[in-house]
Nucleic acid binder design. Structure first.
Length: 500
RNA sequence: GCCCCAUUCGUCUAGAGGCCUAGGACGUAGCCCUCUCAAGGCUAAAACAGGGGUUCGAUUCCCCUAUGGGGCACCA
């Protein structure tokens, strides 16, 4: 989609250090990154910290961690540097001031001395008259004398942009085509605040220009600002980057956009994760999260939903992004994570399982882990699930199973005891403790006794593992070992005997 | 209040005027496989917001309405 005459592809992700890394931000970063990698361009990380009030310490680390975890590497940024630095806006203040002054000198902007109180009053009046809220351009029309007087008094001021009063502005959006705005609906927005810091609009335009950003891909909520930025570029006489507004993630309950939430929450009884760190902590694989995100608002084609990040890079096309916002389809993440877990090699999966087990306070025996790993691989959607499925393999203690749980429906204690004793006898006589030998022996018992596999194996499962759900029975007892398995079965027989 | 964007199964999506009796996926239900649970296979229910145009023909183009989202800060 990028024509070859265009400038080299340089895109940026420009978060504000105002807290945790939100999944919506991650998605925006991902689409920028995919675009950059697809076009062999540069992906730049820039920190927009021009609002000193909202700065939250530690945010920068969360941005690095979140992007890094997903493999969204940046070519230029605060930590890695680059030829267009600094990459932190608070270190570029002189630049913004210089260009704000340039706009004033060229009659494209003006100083405004209005107080917060007056602004608020004007706003109220306009609202009362059912007009659009906003500034009444009072200071735009100050005479030279009035201006000089205010300067002499040393009144604090902001710099405001002189928005064209009439006409219209048409912005070409790479996803939705031309979008037209009436200039009369646009405001004389503030470019430089009274504290000397730029607003987003100024800093963004100046930085994108001097960092030679070729394409801007940002969230949908910025679409209304596009004509403002267009006019700023026009005032400066700079070429505006190509621009696209990405659809946003909506809350699963259908109310508003997801980014209104600052952390994971429960909806319909399931946890809806929204922070990058939560995904990692919950055991989701980075490739699964990337895959999950790339299926929202964009589709691979060929009816494929499962694909690698590399494949996504090869195919990514910003023009094919769906313009409509989407409800966050979090229920697909578990499925995808399961798919990716099954795609992992044993060596890749092992550390995840080890960590999950250790986090649950279990001591991990390497031999046991290696044996249970392939059994668990098709049965878990997150590494943590191995604890519930097979954590008993890593526990020393084994609590005797209560009578009620042991006996299959329609069986009585006498029968159960008799069967268990036969099982113990036959299994202890076994030469070799492989799962197929055990199974062959038990199949023979089934044959002779006419019992149902479900009943017999079910009882043995509970007796040997203490659980009604486990990995396949004989693979499991093979891991548990002959002595311990028989001990547990005898114990079960005793439990039944007492009741009987 | 004004402005902008969007609207295909519950959800994510394919669909760029005839290929659509609208395809895929998740989820749901059923069946098969089966020692439990998964995985896997098969099947089912499930959508073009409504109304006008344009056209020989609209899911696809235009308009209106409705609904949803976003914006209108010395926040980004």
């Amino acid at each position: 989609m990028t024509d070859s005459t265009a400038r080299p592809v340089r895109v940026r992700f420009a978060p504000s250090p105002t807290g945790p890394m939100h999944i919506g931000g991650v998605r925006t970063a991902l689409f920028n990154w995919l675009f950059a990698r697809h076009n062999n361009g540069k992906f730049i990380l820039r920190i927009e910290d021009t609002d000193r009030k909202r700065f939250v310490p530690g945010s920068l680390e969360k941005i690095y961690d979140g992007l890094g975890w997903l493999g969204l590497n940046w070519d230029e940024g605060p930590d890695v540097g680059g030829p267009y630095g600094p990459y932190v806006q608070s270190e570029r203040l002189d630049l913004y001031k210089k260009w704000a002054d340039w706009l004033i000198d060229n009659d494209k902007a003006y100083r405004c001395y209005c107080t917060a109180e007056r602004l608020e009053r004007v706003n109220e009046e306009r609202k009362a008259r059912k007009e659009a809220p906003g500034y009444d351009r009072h200071c735009r029309y100050l005479t030279e004398a009035e201006r000089a007087e205010r300067e002499a008094q040393g009144l604090p001021s902001v710099v405001r942009f002189k928005m064209p009063l009439n006409g219209s502005t048409t912005v070409y959006d790479m996803i939705r085509g031309n979008v037209q705005f009436e200039n009369s609906t646009l405001q004389d927005l503030v470019l430089l605040k009274s504290d000397g810091f730029p607003t987003y609009h100024l800093a963004n335009v100046v930085d994108d220009h001097f960092m030679e950003i070729s394409h801007i891909m940002r969230a949908n909520e910025w679409l209304s600002s596009a004509p403002i930025h267009f006019q700023l570029y026009a005032a400066f006489g700079w070429e505006m980057p190509q621009i696209a507004h990405l659809p946003v993630l909506l809350n699963p309950n259908g109310k508003g956009k997801l980014s209104k939430r600052s952390a994971g929450f429960f909806e319909d009884g399931r946890k809806v994760l929204v922070l990058a760190e939560e995904f990692k902590a919950a055991g989701y694989l980075p490739q699964a999260v990337v895959n999950f995100l790339t299926n929202i608002g964009w589709s691979f084609g060929e009816d494929r939903e499962v694909f690698s990040t590399q494949e996504a890079i090869e195919r990514f096309d910003i023009a094919r992004v769906n313009p409509a916002d989407s409800v966050y389809p979090i229920e697909k993440l578990d499925w995808l994570n399961g798919v990716w877990i099954r795609n992992l090699s044993e060596d890749e999966l092992r550390p995840y399982l080890r960590e999950a087990l250790e986090s649950a306070g279990l001591t991990v025996d390497d031999a046991i882990l290696n044996q249970v790993l392939p059994l668990a691989q098709t049965r878990i959607k997150t590494p943590q699930e191995i604890v519930e499925l097979a954590g008993f393999l890593f526990r020393d203690s084994f609590a005797p199973v209560p009578f009620e749980q042991l006996i299959p429906k329609k069986w009585d204690a006498v029968q159960a005891r008799s069967i268990l004793e036969q099982v113990v006898e036959r299994l202890s006589a076994l030469d070799g403790w492989t799962h197929d030998k055990q199974e062959a022996e038990m199949r023979a018992l089934l044959e002779e006794s006419g019992l149902k596999p479900r009943d017999l194996f079910g009882m043995l499962r509970v007796a040997a593992t203490g659980q009604a759900i486990s990995p396949p029975l004989f693979e499991t007892t093979e891991i548990i070992g002959k002595d311990e398995t028989l001990r547990r079965l005898r114990q079960a027989a005793e439990t039944v005997a007492v009741q009987g």
